[in-house]
Computed example of a mutant assay.
Amino acid sequence: MNNYDFYYPIRFRNKTKNFDNLFNSWKSVENTLGSAYKKDEVIDKYFGKDLDMDTRMSKYFSVLSYRNFEEKGSNIFHFTKELLQLLEQTDVSDIQIKNIKFPFNSFYISVRELNRPFTSDKDDDAIIDGIFIEFKDDNEHDLMHDYHIGFYLCGYSESKKELEFKRTNLDLLELTSELSFESSESTITDAIEVVHQILKDTTESETTTKEYKEKEINFQLEDYKRLKDNLNLIINCIIYISSDKPDIEKEYRAGIPSHLNDRIKKSNTNRKKEVLEQELTKFGYTKINLIGKSYKRIASESSLTTINPHWRRGHWRNQPFGTELKESKLIWIKPTIVNKDKGEIGKGHIYGVKN
């Protein structure tokens, strides 16, 4: 696997048989009468008619998400492990949707360096590769909610060498693939609670015995915890991308043709470089947004004492600015380790951060 195949959107494109024909067929029926039925026919033609429902939905939403991703510029944001670990310790529960600035309406975030499990199955080695993000700020199809954030979770199993895709919220819910916000004032907590209530209502309506109900409630609570943990990380990533002076560098990953790479390095005008980059794009190569390269991990070996170190969680402060302070922007108050010199947090090392 080269560095481009590291990312789900690119692997999906490169590993799918007859992808160009499939994709062109999909685009040709998008705005036609009966497009939903015609898209089903495209899936039948290129993936087969005998797919089970889960696999079929996976293929359908893989193509749909890639289409939206491609239409909005094919932007991939790759986060370093060190920055992701800090964002994990940052709270977003009270952030209002109006304060989140989306860089694009559709893009892909890679969190693969964290090696987060893709499912709750301990026998499944698949990890979360990343997430397709889609933002909608209209209520054309939902009169109850003005804003929607779609999350399409993607995974990769090294042992199976397979792509895995879930259309649902973070591999947890078969009921929804997005967070919905009633107004610009709605918070992340408000949106998650809507999903939580759907879970509870479904559990109560489908349970038949007390034992089954208790089992489902316990399962649902565990899913809810994973949902909040994953959403906390993803929302943090989105906010960081659009924060004040984020650490972002654009560069090609290893794997591009050497003769083109050499020509780009030797280009003495922006126009020549632009032409070469357009040529690379035609071959499926694109610049990746690398996020957090300046965050350096420092391992500090210390013995445990009776006073345990712990994280003081970070948060995003809504900072007014501009004329009469009528505008605002989110400022990251980073998480810190309290009593770092007293020992380790749980197992492993303690990490300091240089920015």
Rank of each mutant, 00 (worst) to 15 (best):
N2R: 01
Y4W: 03
F6R: 14
Y7F: 15
Y7A: 01
Y8I: 06
R13V: 13
N14S: 12
K15F: 05
T16C: 01
D20K: 08
N21R: 08
F23Y: 15
F23D: 00
N24G: 07
S28L: 10
K49W: 04
D52C: 06
T55C: 06
M57P: 00
S58H: 03
S58C: 03
S58K: 11
V63C: 02
L64W: 10
Y66I: 03
G73V: 01
I76V: 14
F79S: 04
L84I: 04
L84D: 03
L87E: 06
L87K: 05
Q89V: 02
Q89I: 02
V92D: 00
V92M: 00
K98N: 10
F102G: 05
F102T: 07
P103Q: 01
I109P: 07
S110A: 04
R112C: 03
E113G: 05
L114E: 00
T119R: 11
D124E: 06
D125M: 07
A126I: 04
G130E: 01
I131S: 09
F132I: 08
K136T: 14
N139Q: 11
E140L: 14
H141L: 07
D142T: 09
H145P: 01
H145Y: 14
Y147M: 05
Y147V: 07
H148M: 04
H148G: 02
C154H: 03
K161Y: 06
L163Q: 10
R167K: 14
T168Q: 13
N169C: 14
L170H: 12
L173A: 06
S180C: 10
S180V: 14
S184T: 09
I188M: 08
T189M: 04
A191C: 07
Q197V: 08
I198F: 11
D201N: 15
T202I: 07
T203S: 02
T207D: 06
K210V: 09
K210N: 10
Y212Q: 15
Y212E: 15
N218D: 11
L221Y: 08
R226L: 15
R226I: 14
K228W: 01
N230A: 08
N236L: 00
I239H: 03
I241W: 05
S242N: 11
K250C: 01
K250D: 01
A254F: 06
R263W: 08
V275F: 05
L276P: 08
Q278C: 05
E279M: 10
L280G: 07
L280S: 04
T281V: 09
G292Y: 00
K293A: 00
R297A: 07
R297F: 00
S300V: 14
T306L: 12
R312C: 02
H315D: 09
P320A: 09
S328T: 13
I333K: 13
I337M: 03
I337D: 00
V338L: 13
D341M: 13
D341A: 15
K342T: 09
G343F: 09
I345N: 04
H349L: 10
I350L: 06
G352E: 15
V353H: 07
K354A: 13
